[in-house]
Simulated scan of single mutants.
Amino acid sequence: MYGEVAIAVNSAFNYLILSFADKVCRRPAGKRRLLAAAVAGAFPVVLFGGAIVPAAAAFMAMTVIAFGLHRNAALKGAGATLTAALFAGGLLTVVNPSGFGIGGTAAVFTSCLFASGGLHLLAVRWRGAEDDAAAADFRVETEIELFGKNIPISAFADSGNACTEPLSGAPVHFISYRAVKEQLPREIRAALENLPKDGVPDLSVFPAEFRSALRPIRLQTVGGSAWAVGFRVSSWAFRGPENVRLGGYIVFTENAAEYPLGADAILHRSSLIHLKERGSTDADRS
């Protein structure tokens, strides 16, 4: 009876650990496969104890059954499984149910609950870190000319930004007003800050010498639609040896809280092709 209970408890913890690895590796193995791997990993440890050889055999059995024999998948799965095992073990050492006066079956369930919650939080942080690392490839340093001044701008190329100027179809980019406010002419700042929040913007409030470069831009958002003033780009380039220049229109936004990675501008998705070309060039140079 004790052996069956020990196998069940070990299988439960193995399943939690493998579920974490399955999530962060983004290669769904299926619940049945994970369960089979968890049980297979429990048998050597229960039957032969926690010596190095049985533990290594259990670990190999779990990772092979759960993630297969493909080299990259197996290595990534093994790394995530080992990380989860160390994390869960450390967590239950610090937050031990026996320290709260819990014993027996209740202690097993409480330990599973603590391990499950901790691994869930770790998985969220893990995937968030991976997403940030991937997003960093779409962040670029640029320099834009605004009303005769060259201003450095950190920009993020957003594949979800498909906004275009309706007449020409030119791409529309977004720049945080806060980031460039002090560089803009006083007349432009006054006109922008006094524009009505609703309706088509009145371009006549802007100085006459700038009106030819202005267009009303209709924006589609999750909350509905709105109008904004688009300024035609005169000169905007990536900073670096590449001679990559951006065109289209820019819209100044009041709130930059949603800009990823601390960027001050959101580029149109058409700029992604330039980043891919730049990445290929960097790879060729290395």
Rank of each mutant, 00 (worst) to 15 (best):
W227F: 03
P28W: 06
R33E: 06
S159A: 13
G103M: 07
Y177H: 11
E187M: 03
V45H: 04
L75W: 15
G118F: 01
A85H: 07
A208I: 15
L219S: 00
R211S: 12
G89W: 01
P28N: 05
I153N: 06
G240L: 12
F48A: 11
T110H: 00
R26Y: 07
I17S: 05
L113T: 10
G160P: 08
I217T: 06
S116Y: 13
A257N: 10
K197M: 09
W227K: 06
T164G: 04
R178D: 15
G160F: 11
Y2P: 00
A36Y: 06
F206K: 00
A263W: 03
L214Q: 08
T83W: 09
A61L: 15
R245L: 11
A58S: 11
S19M: 08
G50T: 14
G49V: 10
S235T: 10
H274Y: 13
G160S: 11
I65F: 05
P54F: 07
V39P: 01
G3E: 13
V108L: 02
K23C: 08
F210T: 14
A37H: 00
E145A: 12
F156T: 03
G224H: 09
A170D: 14
E193N: 11
V39L: 15
F13K: 07
E209K: 09
I273Q: 15
R245F: 13
A36L: 15
D22W: 07
P260M: 09
L92Y: 01
F43W: 13
F43H: 06
G223F: 01
G128T: 05
A78D: 06
T83E: 08
T81D: 14
F67N: 00
S98K: 10
Q183I: 00
P44G: 03
N150L: 14
A38V: 04
F100R: 02
A283R: 15
R285C: 08
S19N: 07
F174W: 05
L219T: 01
P201R: 01
I217G: 09
G90K: 05
V180E: 02
A162L: 13
G89L: 00
R232H: 14
V205A: 03
F156S: 07
T93R: 13
G77A: 10
G101W: 02
V180A: 09
K181I: 04
G49E: 09
Y2R: 11
I65T: 02
P152K: 03
K23A: 13
S271M: 12
T281G: 04
F100E: 02
K181V: 03
G103N: 12
I17V: 14
A155M: 05
F156C: 07
L86H: 10
A133Q: 12
I153H: 04
I17T: 11
